[in-house]
């Protein structure tokens, strides 16, 4: 069983790598897109600390300019590992009917897409690594975390990637009902910006946003692993955070299966 899936993913990875090397410059540009958002947020918050003339404080949470640099740099790297663009791809495939041959294959299309994503990440990480190191040198982030924090962050990052992937794919499957998913994707993007802590650390947002964040999958797929890596999550919160990630992963799989099965029945294969 394991060997079967290993071979499936290895074959798909080879295809993905061949494609990406063919279009290496576009692949690189796509990867660099991930830099823009976090660096702009960092610029905004650094300017805020400079204009205040002091660190940003909210309750027990203190963010200095160096803390912001650390937060957004780690966020940038982590979201490189967890992000995917399947929702955008998927609507296109439904619209053009190019999904049809994929449905005929003896396995779920999500596996081909997932291995493509993994391939993209491995390949681009090699290229981006020097850029990340350079940014760490240039921006002087204050890293309060110990090696242990970073070690604990690895499984939470992995879970975050899985949770994000399954929920994004569920959202992508909405394309079975409407091929105009622009507005839906944008709505997801808004939620992600606030609830996953992309534009600011959750601790600095209004209390009600933080509360909603913790009761939705967004916290687990965005800010949580970053806060763990920076040593900002206490022991008991760590366990409940991981538990929430696992719960959202389980719920995600169930919801995804339901939406997908209903959607495939709805799909009328354009061009068939």
């Amino acid at each position: 069983m394991i060997r079967y899936w290993y071979r499936v993913y290895r074959a798909n990875l080879r295809v993905a790598w061949a494609l990406m090397l063919q279009y290496r410059f576009s692949t690189l540009i796509w990867a660099l897109w991930g830099f823009v958002g976090p660096l702009i947020s960092l610029a905004v918050w650094s300017a805020a600390t400079r204009s205040r003339g002091s660190d940003v404080v909210r309750g027990s949470q203190v963010y200095s300019a160096g803390d912001f640099a650390a937060y957004f740099l780690v966020y940038m790297i982590f979201s490189h590992f967890t992000m995917s663009w399947d929702a955008f791809e998927f609507a296109y495939r439904v619209r053009t009917g190019s999904l049809s041959p994929q449905l005929l294959r003896p396995m779920h299309p999500i596996h081909a897409d997932a291995s493509f994503n993994i391939g993209f990440k491995v390949l681009t990480t090699l290229v981006l690594l020097p850029a990340w190191i350079l940014l760490f040198v240039l921006l002087h982030p204050q890293l309060p975390s110990t090696a242990l924090d970073i070690l604990i962050a690895v499984p939470t990052l992995l879970l975050a990637g899985l949770v994000r992937y399954i929920w994004q794919y569920t959202l992508a499957a909405v394309a079975f009902w409407t091929v105009r998913v622009d507005a839906i994707n944008q709505f997801y993007y808004v939620l992600d910006a606030f609830l996953a802590g992309r534009i600011a650390p959750i601790a600095l947002m209004p209390v009600w946003i933080g509360a909603i964040s913790r009761f939705t999958p967004f916290y687990g797929m965005g800010a949580f692993p970053v806060e763990v890596a920076l040593g900002r999550v206490a022991g008991s919160d760590l366990l409940s955070g991981i538990a929430a990630q696992i719960v959202w992963l389980g719920v995600g799989i169930v919801v995804f299966r339901f939406v997908w099965n209903a959607g495939v029945r709805q799909y009328s294969a354009v061009g068939a």
Binding site: S41, V44, W45, A47, A48, R50, S51, R52, V56, R180, D182, A183, N185, Q186, F187, Y189, V190, A193, F194, I199, A200, L204, M205, P206
Partner: peptide
């Protein structure tokens, strides 16, 4: 669809700025 998407995009930027400005009166002037 695009009109709605533009509004949501705007909402994100304004919201982000509003949160930042809740900690400071000015941003570099």
């Amino acid at each position: 669809g695009r009109l709605l998407a533009s509004f949501l995009d705007l909402l994100t930027t304004i919201g982000a700025l509003a949160i930042t400005f809740s900690y400071t009166d000015t941003l570099q002037g």
